[in-house]
Write a protein that binds this DNA or RNA. Structure first.
Length: 272
DNA sequence: ACGAGGTCCTGCGAGC
DNA sequence: TGCTCGCAGGACCTCG
């Protein structure tokens, strides 16, 4: 499930293969990954355009095109982005972009929870403005984190995962960061002690950086841009460890769906 | 304004 | 063996 580290990994790996390339052909096979654009408009907006940049924003890959537009891929749960040889078959292919060097940029998505967007400059500004700050921005501080989340009465875990408040953190890394910071996931964000934000910010940034170094976490479907599995799932301390002993104190880890209907795993002794 | 819960979609594993 | 069912959850939506 691509969160920030997974999308960052993909973007870094495929950037050199796509930036500078011209898209010669665009063909969309499933239209249910579109929201604000028709399939024909997407294909026409991509075919003939040159890719001038590729970045990550939150959990999304953003292709800058020479027409002043941006092509955004939200991989959702099972989306993957790969540069493959011509003619390579893939039963989960959603979009193929034929590049001018003969290779193909492939968006595949098993469950098609992902979304494709084509945004002009104004739409991109609105899109970008609706997302919270990037936790890995070089100067992102505990104060910034407190400012982003500290007014929310929501459980801190839900606030961490709210893309409007903070960009890029999903269920896996929210669980891991809260364990590392020793914070009860159900605690309202606004109730965190002022001193707690420093530890949480360090934990979030550390976990995300470590996951990027491991090329992300492969649970089921995620593959890097070059088709490999990530490695961070081997270092989970709570996620997928419900019922197993806490690595700090040995207490049996608790699993619950009480927060946002997502699996939350935590140590009720270490996380207060 | 906020929280709760539903929806999309398919593969996988458990249970019968 | 083959079926049904529940679960995984990012982003978005509606309802109260």
């Amino acid at each position: 499930m691509p969160e920030l580290p997974e999308v960052e990994t993909i973007v870094r790996q495929i950037r050199s293969a796509v930036v500078g390339r011209r898209i010669e052909r665009a063909s969309l096979r499933h239209h249910d990954v579109l929201r604000e654009v028709t399939g024909r408009a997407l294909e026409r907006g991509l075919a003939g355009a040159r890719v001038t940049g590729l970045e990550r924003r939150a959990k999304h890959a953003v292709f800058r095109l020479d027409r002043g537009t941006r092509f955004v891929i939200q991989p959702g749960m099972t989306g993957g982005i790969h540069v493959v040889g011509t003619g390579e078959r893939d039963r989960y292919a959603v979009l193929r972009l034929g590049l001018d060097d003969g290779r193909t940029l492939l968006y595949r998505d098993i469950r098609r929870f992902g979304t494709l967007l084509l945004l002009d400059a104004g739409a991109w500004r609105r899109y970008d403005a609706a997302l919270g700050p990037e936790p890995l921005a070089p100067d992102f501080s505990a104060r910034d984190l407190a400012r982003a989340l500290g007014r929310s009465r929501q459980a801190i875990k839900k606030a961490l995962m709210d893309q409007k408040l903070l960009a890029g953190v999903g269920n896996i890394y929210a669980n891991e960061a809260l364990f590392e910071a020793g914070i009860d996931p159900s605690k309202p964000a606004a109730d965190l002690a002022p001193a707690a934000w420093g530890g949480l910010n360090r934990a979030v940034r550390r976990i995300l950086r470590a996951a990027i170094r491991s090329q992300g976490s492969t649970i089921r479907d995620y593959r890097t841009g070059t088709g490999e599995s990530g490695g961070f799932q081997l270092r989970f301390k709570v996620y997928e460890r419900e019922g197993e002993p806490c690595l700090h104190c040995g207490t049996t880890l608790t699993g619950t769906h009480a927060i946002d209907a997502r699996i939350t795993v935590f140590c009720h002794r270490c996380q207060r």
